[in-house]
Design a protein around this nucleic acid. Structure first.
Length: 287
DNA sequence: AGCACA
């Protein structure tokens, strides 16, 4: 009867939202060349393993690769996660930012967009996990300056170079795994199998919208959603009380965009905080 | 923390 701890980051489903007001026009930051599709992750415990980072992100839609970096500043560890597009990186960030990563230490994930995209993709020949270890590469500048505690200090988001030096030793070993099926990613460095399984929110082109006020109308919601490309049909229903809605889009990517933009937004009918939006469990039926 | 329509 083991029940998931609600803060288990591997099973985050309904994370921490940042309600904000909808900008008056559609922000069309699609996937222009140069768009950031890499996340910078801090707030990790210093004994974190590359495998844990991989398991944290591997089920997120559009996930491509990740890497763990020992910065060399004290025991500080950071990670980078690369997605196939900016929007998928944003979705993962929205879902995991602020989540408690280690119940023991209480460490909380702090996730932001990286300053630049990762160059280093996961290569089948170079082992499953990419680890950059700067711990021993202390130059003559060795100053144990502390005072840089906290969590929001992305220092080196520069492009990682080839650092497969034989110096790296005790990484990515032992420790129990929280994912039953986590074998090495093997030779498919693409995304065909990304995001599946039973635990999290599987991406879907239909969105489930909850936390609506009792007076929310279909028209009100439709008016808002119709500003998003690919929006198709909206259905509202109130089962035993508060209304919930299903919004169907043409493509998963368009649903993802709308969700990212509207997450936490208030409607004029809202009386209990902003909307909570998730991928629906199944796509809206064609009728 | 709530997910339908077939």
């Amino acid at each position: 009867m083991a029940y998931h701890q609600p803060y288990d980051p591997f099973y985050v489903y309904q994370p921490h939202y940042h309600p904000h007001h909808l900008p008056p026009q559609l922000p069309q930051f699609a996937d222009e060349p140069g768009a950031i599709n890499t996340l910078f992750v801090s707030g990790l415990p210093n004994d974190v393993k590359a495998r844990e980072i991989h398991n944290l992100f591997r089920r997120r839609y559009g996930f491509e690769s990740c890497q763990l970096k020992y910065t060399g500043r004290g025991d500080q560890v950071v990670a980078f996660a690369t997605f196939t597009s900016h929007r998928f990186a944003m979705a993962a960030m929205n879902e995991l930012n602020g989540v408690k990563f280690d119940p023991q230490t209480g460490s909380t994930l702090h996730i932001e967009l990286a300053r630049s995209n990762s160059r280093r993709k996961e290569r089948p020949g170079s082992g499953p996990y990419v680890v950059i270890d700067n711990r021993n590469k202390e130059l003559s500048k060795s100053q144990d300056d502390q005072s840089d505690e906290g969590d929001s200090d992305p220092d080196e988001v520069q492009e990682p170079r080839n650092s497969e030096s034989p110096k790296e030793n005790d990484n990515a070993k032992s420790e129990a795994d929280s994912e039953p099926d986590s074998k090495a990613p093997s030779a498919n460095g693409h995304l065909e199998k990304a995001y599946e399984g039973g635990s999290g929110a599987r991406a879907c082109s239909t969105l489930f919208i909850a936390n609506l006020g009792p007076n929310c109308t279909e028209d009100e919601l439709r008016q808002l959603l119709s500003r998003y490309s690919g929006f198709n049909i909206l259905k509202i229903r109130a089962r035993g009380g508060m209304p919930v809605a299903f919004a169907d889009f043409e493509e998963i990517e368009q649903a993802t965009d709308a969700m990212n933009e509207l997450q936490g937004n208030l409607l004029s009918s809202s009386d209990r905080g902003g909307m909570h939006i998730e991928y629906a469990r199944s796509k809206m039926r064609k009728q």
